[in-house]
């Protein structure tokens, strides 16, 4: 479904990605783990078209998307929950969800999908008229996820959805990610919380200073002594 081949990205003199390749197949949950500054966010931003790599290819459903602007990539059914949630703080919860459906014109179905988001995240419904900047961190994360779902993605990129959340809420967010996956959305998940990520993923990639150093079935990586030492704190 998504194939990334040897992408290189630099920020000025800083080489953030030095030839990253990975692949996500239909229906999977794929985890991308790695330490701070490994290049996880850069990878996701490159996939979404916010950053242009200077070499390499990215294809999505067989189409080369590397030259497309971000708003067109969303139209292809690839959406992202960015790092740090990035809700529109001066807009209401409802307006944030509407922005998520910006590329769509089927008003009736958009209404239906907003309802579905509210079913999944009842706390958002209670706060639908509230400015998003006044939501708690957990609620903002739910809003960011709901908003990304509003474009009806077939592939959802999630950048550290558990960041800064209490353990209870992390559990909740991860089970929602699994639900989203079970209802047919493929997921590429970036996480610092390698434990949780490997427990729900089918496969995983380990990124280190801009390079993929390990990859394989999530189970195998979770049992790998190297990974356990570096990322699972065991």
């Amino acid at each position: 479904m998504l194939e990334i081949n040897d992408i290189h990205v630099s920020y000025g003199a800083i080489r953030a990605l030095k030839g990253v390749s990975c692949q996500v197949d239909q229906g999977e949950i794929v985890a991308l783990i790695g330490a701070n500054g490994a290049g996880k966010t850069t990878t996701l931003r490159t996939i979404s078209g916010l950053i242009r790599p200077y070499t390499g290819t990215i294809s999505y459903k067989g189409q080369d998307i590397i030259k497309l602007p971000p708003h067109q990539i969303v139209n292809l059914g690839l959406s992202q929950v960015p790092e740090g949630r990035r809700v529109f703080t001066r807009m209401t919860v409802l307006e944030n969800l509407e922005m998520g459906a910006y590329s769509r014109n089927d008003k009736a179905n958009i209404k239906l999908d907003i309802k579905k988001v509210f079913e999944r995240f009842p706390r958002l419904e209670e706060r639908k008229g509230q400015l998003s900047g006044t939501l708690s961190g957990g609620e903002q994360q739910m809003l960011a996820m709901g908003r990304a779902l509003m474009s009806r993605p077939t592939l959802l990129l999630l950048d550290e959805p558990s960041m800064g959340l209490a353990p209870m809420l992390v559990q909740e967010i991860f089970s929602i990610i699994q639900e989203i996956n079970q209802s047919g959305t493929t997921i590429l998940l970036v996480e610092q919380n390698a434990h949780m990520a490997l427990s729900i993923a089918n496969r995983a990639y380990v990124l280190e200073t801009g390079e993929v150093v390990l990859s394989g079935a999530a189970q195998d990586l979770a049992n790998d002594p190297q990974v356990q030492k570096a990322y699972l704190g065991e």
Binding site: P82, R86, M99, S103, A148
Partner: peptide
């Protein structure tokens, strides 16, 4: 509404499908 979104955050607006 897209104007308000873009005046807050270009990148995230683009991720919503806003040109």
């Amino acid at each position: 509404k897209a104007m308000r979104a873009a005046s807050e955050d270009y990148d995230t607006s683009a991720l919503m499908g806003i040109n």
